[in-house]
Amino acid sequence: MRDAVAGGALTEVTFYILLSLFEPRHGYAVMQFIEAETAGRLTLGAGTLYGALKALEERGWIERHGNEHGRKKEFVITDAGRAAAQSELRRLRALTLTAEKIMGGAI
């Protein structure tokens, strides 16, 4: 989460986790979401995910969802998390705009 301090940029993993939690999900479902959305380019280790979820929860960007007695712990994004994701989307749009201006639209 160190990068969030630098230029306001989120790490790719952080952003994907936030996106995955627009619907309540447990840890394993977050891993599956990221793998599916990136077609396997980005796989997240369980230890890394654990640390990231903990850090995001401490920051108040995600929170526990529902009661968790005997069930897998589920998380969901908070309003503060949505705001962070929103500003990241704006940042990425500005970045791709600059890139397209210089490199041309062709990929």
């Binding site: 997240l44 230890g47 890394t48 640390g51």
Partner: peptide
């Protein structure tokens, strides 16, 4: 068939 890694980002591997 994929490597069994619990820590996959540079930041997290550094912390570990």
């Amino acid at each position: 068939g994929r490597p069994f890694e619990l820590h996959t980002t540079a930041e997290d591997r550094l912390a570990y």
